[in-house]
């Protein structure tokens, strides 16, 4: 049928193609226009803005690398935020990943009340952070919170001051993040576990493998691509996060929980230094792009296997 059309002459087929293209564009335009204006343009603009000085009242001025030089050489807050972000990421990621896998392995067994457990573990992920965080802060209130009440009842005379202490503020936030997020990754793992063929386990049983051996020889290779995917997702999610810090500690005490994205927020919306904030954002972007590139590279490797 397509051939019959072609013989009708080139004019007709080229108008037909143009019509097809027009129809296709009418499908993508509503999304593309909105996406282009409200997401794509700001992304490109942020690259440009990072080389500019743009304070509240003053006009935009191109300053070359000045923002980056100030950031790397003079801005102590930047280095503190970067260190805190790395601390937050490096602890939160493996903890969440490990607990999610542990829970998924438990949940993958024949189980009564499976839906109940799954729902309970997953619900914090969809619950509002503002609501959850205020509960968490009350529980960990250093003077009157029930957590310290229990610790003192157990004989610990000076329990940690949690969010009020420079040492413990970050672990408190990490605890909240892990608690809230692990159910989500557990579900991703659970789907991957269910994708591993029963036969592989049966074959391993016939070979006399015990639980651990089955885990390392059958389960682990089977979920490796998922583990890698979750790892990358978690790295990006924790690296860009700052809402939890904003809601719980406002980056404090001092600058103990100030992270990179929070520094961007402060520079832009508190100090009205929009150019400088964009320069800090470029550092965040660079880190995230490195993670994404690694992901692309290894994802190909995994899908080839």
């Amino acid at each position: 049928m397509g051939k019959a059309n072609n013989t009708d002459g080139q004019v007709k087929s080229s108008t037909l193609r143009r019509r097809k293209t027009l129809v296709a564009y009418s499908f993508i335009m509503p999304n593309l226009i909105g996406f282009f204006i409200f997401t794509f343009v700001p992304i490109v603009f942020s690259l440009f803005l990072s080389f500019c000085e743009w304070d509240s009242g003053n006009p935009l001025k191109f300053v070359g690398l000045k923002n980056f030089i100030t950031m790397f050489t003079k801005d102590k807050s930047f280095w503190i935020s970067l260190t805190n972000t790395i601390y937050y990421t490096v602890v939160t990621t493996p903890l969440t990943l490990g607990l999610a896998l542990f829970l998924a392995v438990l949940m993958n067994k024949p189980l009564k009340g499976r839906v109940f457990f799954r729902s309970v573990l997953f619900f914090p992920y969809v619950a509002s952070l503002v609501a959850i965080a205020v509960v968490w802060m009350a529980l960990f209130n250093p003077e009157k919170g029930p957590v310290n009440g229990i610790l003192m009842a157990l004989g610990i005379a000076n329990p940690p001051r949690w969010a009020a202490s420079t040492t413990w503020a970050m672990p408190t936030i990490i605890g909240l993040t892990v608690w809230k997020g692990m159910g989500y990754y557990m579900i991703v793992y659970l789907a991957a576990l269910q994708g591993i063929s029963r036969e592989l386990y049966e074959a391993a049983s016939l070979d006399g493998a015990n639980g651990w051996q089955k885990f390392w020889n059958v389960t682990w290779p089977g979920i490796l691509p998922t583990t890698f995917y979750i790892l990358m997702m978690l790295l990006v999610a924790t690296f860009k996060s700052y809402d939890t810090m904003y809601i719980t500690t406002q980056g404090g005490p001092g600058e103990a929980t100030k992270v990179l994205a929070y520094h961007i927020y402060n520079q832009a919306f508190k100090n009205a230094k929009f150019g400088y904030a964009s320069a800090v954002a470029m550092v965040l972007l660079a880190i995230i792009l490195v993670v994404t590139l690694i992901q692309f590279k290894y994802e190909k490797k995994f899908s080839n296997d």
Partner: peptide
């Protein structure tokens, strides 16, 4: 173009977006 921007978090462009 769509795929490439998926990886870029809002925190990176929230400032210019606000100005815009």
């Amino acid at each position: 173009l769509y795929i490439m921007t998926i990886a870029i978090p809002w925190q990176v462009y929230m400032v210019p977006q606000y100005k815009m």
